[in-house]
Amino acid sequence: MLAVMMHQFESASQKYADENGIVRDPDWYMLKLQEEVGEVTQAWNRLTGRGRGKGRSEEEMKRDLADETADLLGHVLLLAHRNGLDIEEAIERKWRFRPSK
């Protein structure tokens, strides 16, 4: 399941990089992951009243949090894919369950 998602995120990311002249060197994966953690935090702060809401409704702020969380997940999987990490095995080892296929 996650291996398929990794390939899907990789294809989408490579297409975006090609279209925008982005070089995805090894550091890019970690730096993008850090950027996305910051964006999730920012969305959380807005939703919980710890940041400027920018006139957005609660529903819009929840959608923003979902969008940023999706970006974070994508970049976690991109980092894993780039480094040949077996995330399903790691989940089984660390969380003690096997992701559904």
Rank of each mutant, 00 (worst) to 15 (best):
L33S: 10
V23E: 04
R46T: 12
D18T: 10
L85H: 03
W44T: 08
D27H: 12
A43S: 15
E58Q: 03
T41F: 11
N45A: 14
T41G: 11
L65V: 00
R50W: 06
Y29E: 01
I91Y: 13
V37D: 01
N20F: 05
H75P: 03
Q14E: 05
Q42N: 14
D27W: 13
D67R: 14
M30V: 13
L65S: 02
D25E: 15
L31E: 14
G53H: 12
F9N: 01
P99N: 15
Q14I: 01
G49A: 06
M5N: 12
E36Y: 03
A3H: 09
V37K: 05
E68N: 08
D64G: 06
F97E: 09
A12D: 04
R24L: 01
I91A: 14
V40C: 05
E92N: 10
S11A: 04
E59A: 08
E19F: 05
P26A: 05
E39A: 10
I22A: 07
A17Y: 10
H7G: 09
D71M: 02
E89H: 08
W28S: 02
E89V: 04
A90Q: 06
M1P: 15
Q14L: 06
E35Q: 07
D64H: 12
V4C: 12
G84Q: 03
N83D: 07
R82E: 06
K62S: 12
L72S: 11
G74Q: 02
Y29P: 05
Y16I: 10
M30N: 13
E39F: 14
N45G: 13
L65N: 01
